[in-house]
Design a protein around this nucleic acid. Structure first.
Lengths: 354, 354
DNA sequence: CGAAAATGTGGCATCGATGCCACATTTGGG
DNA sequence: CCCAAATGTGGCATCGATGCCACATTTTCG
C-alpha cells in the first residue's frame, strides 16, 4: 500500500470513531463553572460538595446530556459494578430462576449482571473465568463445573459465591438448597404412604447436590427402618432421554412402587416413560421430583416435588456476594443452606398392595 | 493531624487498594524485553509484530500471568465487547430461550452479554438503557416496552436490534417471528378440522406481536370464507390468572369449539380453566397456542402449537447486531421475519358436531 | 553499489474519571 | 480583633492499553 493509501486509511479510521462525541466531566465542569474534580464529587463520589454546587452541577449535567463512562471510572478506581454469573444452561428453568433472582438483587444494588452459559463444559467455564477476570469484576456467582474455576478466580482477588453446589473443599462461599433435608422429607413422605421399594433416579453424586440428595434418601430409609436396596439407586446421565431409558430399565428389572427423580430434567424422562407405559399415577406408581419447576404443576396428575426456592437461592447468592464485596463479612467462609419445601400434589399416593 | 500522621494515613490508604496488583503490559514488556506498544500489538491489536516477537511476548505474558484489562482497553479505544440485552422476564421460557440464543452467538464472537430484566416496566427499561449507555456498549438487543428506549439508545450512537416486536415506527433493526403467517397457519389448521367458532385469547395488539397474530387469525377466516365473530376475540391481560378468568367468561358467554392462545403465558390460564371444567380435550374443545414451550408437550394431551424457534430468533438478533457493529450492513433498516412452524399434537381435533 | 521502499519496534500522548493533596475562604474562640 | 480550625474547591497525576508517529534497520531494485 502506498503512503498516500496508508494516510487515507488512517484518516478513515479516525473519522469512523468519533461518531457521537459524548460530553465528559470536563464539559459539565465548564457548563457549571466549576472544576472537573468538583463535578465528580457532586455527581458520583462520596467526597463533599455543597448542596448549592451539587444542584448546579446536576442541572448542568442534565442540560448537556452527560452520561458517566463506566470504563473510565472502573479503570481509575480499579473496580467495576459488573458481576459475573456463570451457569450451565439458561434454558433449564432452574438456572433461569437462579439467574433471575441474582439479577433482581444486583439491579436493586445498581450492579450489572454479565451472564455466561458454560454448557457444563470445563473448558468453556475457564474461558469465561478468564473473560470475567479481564473485565475486573469484583465478584462472580458460579454453579461450578470444576473446582479450578472458583479457585483461579479467587487467586486473582475476585470474590466467589458458588451457587447450588460445593465442589471438593473449594474455597468461596456457597449457597445451596438443603438437599439432604429436602430429599429426606420427600422420601419420608413416600415411606409414610407405605412405599418400601422406591427407585431413585440420579445423575451424579460427586457434587454436593447429588450427594446431599442421595444422603437424604438414605437417611429417610434408616430413620424409618426400611431396608434400602442399593439396586434401586439408578444412575443415569443428565439428560431427559437417558433418564427415560434408565427409568425403563428400572421398571423392567425391579418392582418399585415409587420413583424419585433427583432433578427436573430427569423427571421429564421418567414421566415420559410412565406415560408411554400408560401407568396409572399414583394408583400403580408414585412419582416425585426434587426441584419444582412450572410444568410439574401443569401435568396431570401434578407432581409432588421439593421446591428449592430457586429464585430466592439466587437472591441469597447476590446478597452474600455484595456483602463480601463491601467487606461486611468476616473472613470465614460462609455456607448458606436454604430450607426447601415439600409440595404434595397428585402424583404420589398410597403404595399399591402387592 | 500531624504531617507524620497524615503520611501514615496515606500509606494505609495506598496499601488498601493494591490487594493483588495484577501485571500490566509494562510488566510483560519488561519480561519480554520489548516495549509496551509491541506487547499490545503482539497480543491483541491488529498491528504488526513479527512471529518471533509474538511468541516471545506470549510466553512472557503466560509466565507472569498477564490478563488484559478490558476497562483500560475500552476507555482508550472507545468501544466495548459487552452487549446489552434487555428483556422483560427471564423466568418466562420465551425470554430465557431468546437470551440463551443471543448469549450463544455472542460468546462465539468473543462478546459478553449484560442481561437486564425490566419486568415490562418502562421506567426500569429506561434506567437500564442509561446504564448500558454508561457502559459504552456498542449495541443492545431489546424486547422494547416503549419506543423511547430504542430511540434514546440510537440517539447516543448505540446500535439497536428489537427482538420479538416492533414498536411504532421506531428505528432499529427488528427480528421477529412471522406472527401473521404462524397465526394464520394455526387458524387454518383448526378451520380445516371443521371449527368455525374459534376463540382467540390475546393480551395486546399494540405491538407487532399481538397485531400480527390477530391479523393472521383474521386472514385465515377470510381465506376460508368463515365469518369471524368479533366477540370471540377475548382481550385479557398478560397474566395466567387473568387469562383463566377471561377463558371462563369466553366459555360461559359463547359456544366456541376451539381456543387459540396468543402466547405461552395465556395458554397456562386457558389450560387451567379447561382442566377445572373437566372438558375433554380435544373431543369437546380444541386448544392451541402460539409460542411452543416445553411444558406444552408434557401435558396430556400435548398442545398443538406454533413454534417460533425462539433460540434461533435470539441467535439471529445477535448475528444481525454484530454485523451492524462491524459495519457490514447497508444503512437501511433491516426487518427479519423468522418463519414459524406449526406443530400438531393431541389438543386439537375435529370440531364436535353441534 | 547506493538510494528508495519496506519492515519492525519504540516513544509519547491520550481515553475520562477520580484520589489525593494544597490552598483559599469562612467560621469560631479567646 | 487576630489567629487557629473548619470548610469547600481546584490542580495534578494516575489507572492500563493503544493509536499514531518517528525512526532504525533491512530489503529491493535500477
Amino acid at each position: 500500500m502506498s503512503p498516500r493509501g496508508q494516510q487515507a486509511a488512517r484518516a478513515v479510521q479516525q473519522t469512523v470513531q468519533p461518531s457521537v462525541r459524548r460530553p465528559t466531566v470536563q464539559d459539565v465542569a465548564r457548563e457549571a463553572g466549576v472544576s472537573p474534580s468538583t463535578v465528580s464529587r457532586a455527581l458520583h463520589t462520596r467526597g463533599y460538595a455543597s448542596p448549592d454546587v451539587r444542584a448546579r452541577v446536576r442541572a448542568a449535567a442534565e442540560r448537556i446530556g452527560y452520561v458517566l463512562d463506566h470504563n473510565a471510572r472502573n479503570l481509575r478506581s480499579r473496580t467495576s459494578t459488573s458481576i459475573g454469573v456463570l451457569i450451565s444452561d439458561l434454558r433449564n428453568p432452574f438456572y433461569a430462576d437462579l439467574a433471575a433472582g441474582i439479577e433482581e438483587e444486583l439491579r436493586a444494588a445498581e450492579y450489572q449482571m454479565v451472564l455466561v452459559n458454560d454448557n457444563g463444559d470445563p473448558a468453556e467455564e475457564m474461558r469465561a473465568a478468564e473473560t470475567l477476570l479481564a473485565m475486573r469484576v469484583p465478584g462472580v456467582i458460579v454453579t461450578p463445573v470444576t473446582a479450578k474455576c472458583p479457585r483461579v478466580l479467587q487467586e486473582n482477588g475476585v470474590h466467589v459465591v458458588c451457587a447450588d453446589r460445593e465442589l471438593g473443599r473449594s474455597n468461596g462461599d456457597v449457597v445451596m438448597s438443603d438437599n439432604k433435608a429436602g430429599a429426606r422429607e420427600l422420601t419420608d413422605h413416600l415411606i409414610a404412604l407405605g412405599h418400601t421399594r422406591i427407585g431413585l433416579l440420579i445423575d451424579e453424586t460427586k457434587w454436593s447436590t447429588g450427594a446431599g440428595r442421595l444422603a437424604g434418601f438414605r437417611a429417610a430409609h434408616l430413620d424409618n427402618f426400611v431396608d434400602l436396596d442399593e439396586d434401586l439407586i439408578a444412575y443415569t446421565s443428565f439428560d431427559a432421554d437417558a433418564a427415560r431409558e434408565t427409568t425403563r430399565k428400572l421398571l423392567n428389572e425391579h418392582d418399585v412402587t415409587a420413583i424419585i427423580s433427583a432433578n427436573n430434567v430427569l423427571a421429564q424422562g421418567a414421566l415420559a416413560e410412565l406415560k408411554d407405559r400408560r401407568l396409572k399415577v399414583p394408583r400403580q406408581l408414585s412419582l416425585a421430583a426434587y426441584d419444582d419447576v412450572p410444568w410439574m404443576s401443569l401435568v396431570q396428575p401434578a407432581l409432588t416435588t421439593v421446591d428449592q426456592h430457586t429464585v430466592e437461592l439466587g437472591r441469597s447468592c447476590a446478597r452474600l456476594l455484595l456483602a463480601r464485596i463491601r467487606g461486611e463479612l468476616p473472613a470465614k467462609r460462609r455456607i448458606v443452606r436454604v430450607a426447601p419445601r415439600l409440595i404434595v400434589r397428585g402424583s404420589t399416593g398410597p403404595a399399591p398392595r402387592g
